[in-house]
């Protein structure tokens, strides 16, 4: 019983972390162009900061 005091908050916290991460990806528009992202991953020269 006593270990539940730690385990349940930990479980909820981890789940909450996932939720927050998802909401963050949504807000930063990471689902706007799924097809493009798939290609950009293969492109070497892309998305580097300009020198």
């Amino acid at each position: 019983m006593s270990n539940l005091v730690f385990l349940i908050p930990i479980a909820l916290f981890l789940g909450g972390l996932g939720l927050v991460a998802f909401l963050w990806t949504l807000r930063t528009g990471q689902y706007e162009d799924l097809d493009g992202a798939a290609w950009r991953a293969l492109d070497d020269g892309d998305d580097k900061p300009e020198a």
């Binding site: 706007e32 162009d33 097809d35 493009g36 290609w39 950009r40 492109d43 020269g45 892309d46």
Partner: peptide, 28 residues
């Protein structure tokens, strides 16, 4: 329709001094 299109378009647009940035959205 593919990665090469993204690179070509964004690369060509970048050559123009007036273009600050450009981004292709392949899905839409």
């Amino acid at each position: 329709y593919c990665g090469a299109c993204i690179t070509t378009l964004e690369g060509e647009l970048k050559k123009l001094p007036m273009v600050a940035r450009s981004r292709v959205n392949l899905s839409s």
